[in-house]
Simulated scan of single mutants.
Amino acid sequence: MATKKIIETLQRPEFTTDTLQIVKTVIAATAAWWLSITILDSAMPFLAPWTALLTVHATVYRSLSRGAQSTVASAIGVGLSFLIGSFLGVSLWTFALALFVGLIGARVTWIRDEGIAIATTAIFVLGSGFDSQQPLLVERIVEIALGVAVGLAVNLIIIPPIRDRQASRYVDSINRRMGDVLINMSDEFSDSWDTDRAEDWFRETESMTDELNTAWQSVRFARESRKANPRGDLRKTLKNQRANREHHEAGEEDYSNILSRVDEGISHLRNLARTLRDASYAEGEWDTRFRRKWAEIVKDTGHSISDPDADVEPVYDRLDTLAKNLSGDGKLPETSWPLYGALITSLRHIVVVVDDVASAREAREPNDA
């Protein structure tokens, strides 16, 4: 079991992306350090690798954006250090003044993401022997630019990430979890259940919502990862790029709709769990026909959601038939209908949502090759 979980973790796109990110950062910082020593013969070889480390982000677009901010912020930090050091000298209070001004500058909107580099650069310059660095303002700025350039180059060259399929994995995972909950509901409902079991189902739906939020992040990441990304340019002709771009744009829109529908499905499942939880406190016996038929339909719904290839009878029509049979013979107590109707309606909503999600997925999967 432990080995299987480790293998699954290693195969997750997030693990691959994080590992690649670490490798790229190490390569960029090391290359910048080597260039700083061998080409620039720098007396402060840590500036270039430091800015390279700041520049390597998860997407090329973010690296370009953050790299520009790092360059500006670090250059401001160097200039601030030289101004304070030259006119006021280096002492306890001037060091604090440089940090104070740098942290205020970090709040500037257009460099806020990397604005802290103003203060940290001031620490490097003032804390490493300012007198020896004073004539070397241009060289320090060149080292910073070198680090940013190396970071950008590494992120452009070494497999810029595209997470086109990651949202699909999350949708599949959530569907499997929804199916498992429904199957478990059916097993429990066929015999008996208590409030604790209903609470477990309710908490599981909340966990699904957390996973869905991660899926939304993946879709937004995929959208950003295609900006300024050269991978498609290296693999396809201009015509194919245009078609691929149109497909990706449609895919983003499709997955936005898909995830919205999945969110609806989770909400209906949560409502179903809440209804069963509340019903566990109610007095009286369940109608045997309803209990048996509804449990069968719930189990088949769970199987069809968790395994789209499962061979089960159409669920939606069976729910309608159940409702008609129970209402037609007049044997069901009128006080039971609000509860039974809520259970039938919630399950019907889940079936409709999952069918919509499956149809949308089938409409776009063939184009993913």
Rank of each mutant, 00 (worst) to 15 (best):
V150K: 04
V150C: 02
G151H: 00
G151E: 03
G151F: 01
G151Y: 00
L152W: 01
L152A: 01
A153S: 01
A153R: 02
A153C: 05
V154T: 06
N155E: 11
N155V: 12
N155D: 13
N155S: 09
N155L: 09
L156M: 05
L156K: 02
L156W: 02
I157A: 05
I157D: 06
I157F: 05
I158G: 02
I158Y: 02
I159C: 13
I159E: 15
I159L: 12
P160R: 00
P160Q: 00
P161M: 01
P161Q: 00
P161E: 00
P161W: 00
I162C: 09
I162Y: 07
I162L: 13
I162K: 10
R163V: 08
R163W: 15
R163M: 14
R163N: 15
R163Q: 12
D164R: 06
D164G: 11
D164F: 15
D164C: 07
D164Q: 11
D164N: 09
D164L: 13
R165S: 08
R165M: 08
R165P: 08
R165F: 08
R165W: 06
Q166P: 02
Q166A: 04
Q166R: 03
Q166T: 03
A167L: 08
A167K: 12
A167G: 12
A167V: 11
S168Q: 15
R169S: 10
R169Y: 11
R169I: 14
Y170F: 03
Y170V: 01
Y170W: 03
Y170C: 03
V171T: 03
V171Q: 00
D172M: 05
D172K: 13
S173P: 08
S173R: 11
S173W: 05
S173C: 09
I174Y: 05
N175I: 04
N175P: 05
N175L: 11
N175R: 14
R176W: 08
R176P: 07
R177C: 09
M178G: 09
M178I: 10
G179E: 01
G179P: 06
D180S: 14
D180Y: 15
D180K: 08
V181C: 14
V181T: 13
V181R: 14
V181A: 14
V181M: 12
L182R: 10
L182F: 02
L182W: 08
L182K: 06
I183L: 11
I183P: 09
I183W: 07
I183M: 07
N184L: 06
N184P: 09
N184E: 15
M185C: 04
M185A: 05
M185F: 01
M185N: 05
S186P: 07
S186A: 11
S186Q: 09
S186V: 09
S186Y: 12
S186T: 10
S186E: 05
D187G: 09
D187I: 11
D187C: 09
D187Y: 08
E188Q: 12
E188F: 14
E188P: 15
E188Y: 14
F189I: 04
F189H: 10
F189M: 03
F189T: 05
F189D: 03
